[in-house]
Amino acid sequence: MRHGYTGIPRWALGIAAVGALFVLLPLAAMAARVDWPHLLPLLSSEASLTALGLSLRTAAASTVLCLLFGVPLALVLARTSFRGQRLLRSFVLLPLVLPPVVGGIALLYTFGRQGLLGRSLEIAGVQIAFSTTAVVLAQTFVALPFLVVSLEGALRSAGSRYEAVAATLGARPGTVLRRVTLPLVLPGLASGAVLSFARSLGEFGATLTFAGSLQGVTRTLPLEIYLQRETDADAAVALSLLLVAVAVIVVGLSYRGPSPAGGDSGPVAGSRTGRTTGRISGVRREAP
């Protein structure tokens, strides 16, 4: 973008405007429907506050799980190469394109009472169905790919030259990861985490299918909106606005930082093997 050339055909501008309107207009239409004088009472009802609190707590827990599993997954996908890696990547990214309700059904047959693992868990005294844990699992399932995609992209863009330097200087893989790799991809990691949080916050289909809907336990904000819509359209619109506001803040946060993929350090072919082949000549010594 910053390379100076900004000439785009005029027709692209027109179509871009239509595309932007297509997204903005429904949001504006919804904002126009908000019962502004009663917005605060609608938002501060007990059911709304409980749902918001539950949503924030479960989304935070899911983000932690995404980081826990997503960072190693992204490392394996970006820094190693093995047979079946492409297949693994496809499967990890599958929830991105899967309808959430399908994810919910899959989780049900895994962690449900009659499920693959659920039966053993039940015997062990762990009940996942209809619990807040089920909500967190559903959210993690749909949000994990966001973290993996962001982080893998950042890792590939950053290349492995600094890591190779650190390794030749005697740092062990754990140290390299902690002192070089992670600090280097921190912006990508942060934006991945924020996106995962946002996706968790908006999770609906898998939660409804897998976790159920009970105030304070499993009824997150999207489920509350879905239910309020039946009787109180004003409350549903007010809560929707709240979710839009949270989403705008989250997206704003995740795209504010300098993009790690920007500039000219695109994915360098062959740099993955840098650690062993020692392509370190010309690399600045002061690795971050």
Binding site: R113, A129, L208, G212, S213, L214, R219, L223, L227
Partner: peptide, 20 residues
């Protein structure tokens, strides 16, 4: 003291047929 209050009767039925 229900474990879940679903928004449609189909969802209730689904929770029973799946054995949850």
């Amino acid at each position: 003291k229900p474990v879940s209050e679903e928004s449609s009767v189909t969802d209730v039925l689904g929770k029973v047929t799946s054995g949850e």
